[in-house]
Amino acid sequence: MLKLSIFCVLLTSVAVVLGCDTACSASQDANGRCYYSCTDNACHMSGSHHRDQFLNGLSTRGYDCRPEGYNTLSCGKTGSFGGCWGHKWTCGAGC
């Protein structure tokens, strides 16, 4: 019985590690900009960490994005950017 309990705990731990969490997602579409909110504790990191990573990824692609606060950012809506809800930032081994 103890071996079965240990196996279940290990299996649950592996499932958590291999999961893919949404760290940043669209929260608002206003004034020609898309606004994104990033979650604290997704993959054990702060919302500001995820904001910076997402911002860097979007900026590298040439999008007009900027930080808006501790865990938020916004991007200008241009033809190449597309819709607000088409972008998100995920983390975890299963992504």
Rank of each mutant, 00 (worst) to 15 (best):
S59I: 02
A30R: 03
T39V: 00
Q53F: 09
D40P: 08
C34R: 01
V9R: 01
R51H: 02
Y70I: 03
G19W: 13
D52M: 07
H50I: 14
S37Q: 07
P67T: 12
G82S: 15
H50G: 13
C38A: 12
R61L: 15
I6Q: 10
P67K: 10
R66T: 12
W89C: 13
S74G: 12
K77D: 03
N71L: 01
C91S: 08
K77Q: 07
V17R: 14
Y35H: 06
K3T: 14
F54I: 03
A93E: 00
N56R: 00
E68N: 04
W85L: 10
S25I: 06
L10C: 05
L10N: 02
C34H: 01
M45Q: 15
C75Q: 06
C24I: 06
G32C: 09
A42C: 09
Y35L: 11
R66L: 11
P67R: 14
G62D: 11
H87K: 04
A15G: 05
C24V: 09
S74L: 04
N56K: 01
C20W: 11
C65W: 03
S74F: 01
G19C: 14
K77H: 06
C91K: 08
L11N: 06
C34N: 02
V17I: 08
A23Q: 00
G79N: 15
G83A: 15
R66N: 13
V16K: 12
N71R: 03
H87A: 05
M1H: 10
G32D: 07
E68P: 00
Y35V: 12
L58C: 06
N71C: 01
G94M: 10
G32A: 07
G19M: 14
V17A: 13
K3A: 15
S48H: 04
L73M: 04
N41G: 05
V17M: 13
T60V: 08
A30H: 00
C20P: 13
D29N: 07
N31H: 10
Q53Y: 10
P67V: 15
F81V: 10
L58Q: 04
G62E: 08
T72M: 09
L10M: 04
L11A: 00
K88E: 13
S27P: 06
V17G: 11
S37N: 09
T39C: 04
D21T: 07
S27L: 12
S80E: 14
D64K: 00
R61S: 15
A23C: 13
L4W: 11
V16D: 06
L4M: 11
S46Y: 02
T39L: 03
T22K: 13
